[in-house]
Simulated scan of single mutants.
Amino acid sequence: MVDAVIFDLDGVLVDSEPVWERVRRRYVDARGGRWQADTQHRLMGMSTGEWSRYLHDELGVPEPPERIAADVIGEMADEYARQLPLIDTAAEVVRRLARRWPLGLASSSPRRLIEVALEATALTDVFRATLSTEEVARGKPAPDAYLAVAERMGVPAGRCVAVEDSTNGVRAAAAAGMRVVAVPRRSYPLTPDAEQLAAVILTDITELTEETVPPARSPRIVEISRGRMVVDGIGEGKDFKLYPGGGRPWDWTETGTRHDPGIQPADVTELLGNGATRVVLAEGFDGQLRVDPATVRFLEERGVEVHVARTDRAVELYNSLAVREAVGALIHSTC
């Protein structure tokens, strides 16, 4: 279940990346700096403090970072005043999704430019929370901005879906535990690792609809050892039921489950009820917990792909599937 959708701004709602590149490159060149072929890709997602230091430290701009930031942001504001490069239909997409979910905004742009863009599109009141990476400790690809927006909205990060265009943005949202819809620009394609982190990749923002928003991400298993598990956003325990957007401790006595005949259909119905379309069932570290054949039939008859494995392999498989799939799991951490 998805509780909120959080948008990036640059490259998703406003086609600003070419403008940023033009302005910063012109600024670096005019001051004797050294713009590199990969500079724009490196800068995408950085906070104002981070990219201004990068221009000073790595590209050789002699002005101090504070002056660099003020100069570049001033030039960007002038560019926006002449013509704001809105992406066609992006505002319509935002308003349509706002009828279904509360929306947030996590942008690497400074607050000044965020406000200009939202006022120009009449979207200021559509977003429940907006944030610039200036307002958190680290810019993208760190997860700080996405975690902060989710907190301001009062929604667990794992129950949010992020909409991003850049490699660093996708990395940031995925690190926050969110499912990611990527809408990369042709001029700035995703790196292979970012493609693997995205649950959905669209070619155009018009393809973003209620139907293409994926279910919330299943929580990651952070630690596993005999008799102990730690699940991101849920906590510590021995056995867990996990599914898109959440999970809880798994108490076998609820359904009278025993090692033999093992996991029953009644144990997995909650996973399906929370949107799981693939299910991982852990047999324990020693393989002593069986899976009733009736459970496998129950799932397969409903079109659900089933994976049965010992706990160490089941955890590895579950975590890898959770990045892109609506996966549920029953994880047993002993025997």
Rank of each mutant, 00 (worst) to 15 (best):
P110K: 14
V163R: 04
T124Q: 13
R100T: 15
R185C: 03
R186N: 08
L103R: 08
E92F: 00
L97T: 11
W101L: 07
R171A: 10
E119N: 13
S108T: 11
W101Y: 14
A157G: 15
T130E: 01
E151R: 14
L105V: 03
P102V: 01
E135C: 09
G177W: 02
S166G: 13
T167R: 02
P184R: 07
V183H: 01
P143V: 11
A173I: 02
A120W: 00
R111W: 11
E119K: 14
V136T: 08
P156L: 12
A157L: 14
A162R: 07
S108H: 11
A106T: 12
L105P: 00
V170P: 04
T133Q: 05
V126Y: 12
M178G: 07
S108Q: 08
P141N: 11
N168Q: 08
P156C: 10
E164P: 01
P184I: 06
R112C: 07
E92A: 15
A157R: 14
Y146K: 05
V170S: 03
L105F: 05
V126W: 11
R100I: 15
A174N: 13
G158M: 05
L97C: 08
T130M: 05
F127W: 04
V94N: 03
D125Y: 06
D125Q: 14
G104R: 01
R128H: 13
L131C: 07
G104W: 01
M178H: 01
F127Q: 00
R152T: 09
R100Q: 15
L118N: 04
V136R: 03
T133H: 03
V180F: 08
W101P: 07
V149G: 08
T124A: 15
R99V: 09
A145H: 00
S109M: 12
T124W: 06
R112H: 13
C160V: 10
V149L: 07
P110S: 15
D125R: 11
G158V: 06
Y146E: 04
A145V: 09
P156G: 12
R171G: 04
A172I: 03
D165A: 11
R179E: 02
R186D: 11
P156N: 12
R128Y: 02
S132G: 11
S132F: 12
V170Y: 01
R171K: 11
V126C: 10
V155Y: 06
E115W: 04
A142V: 07
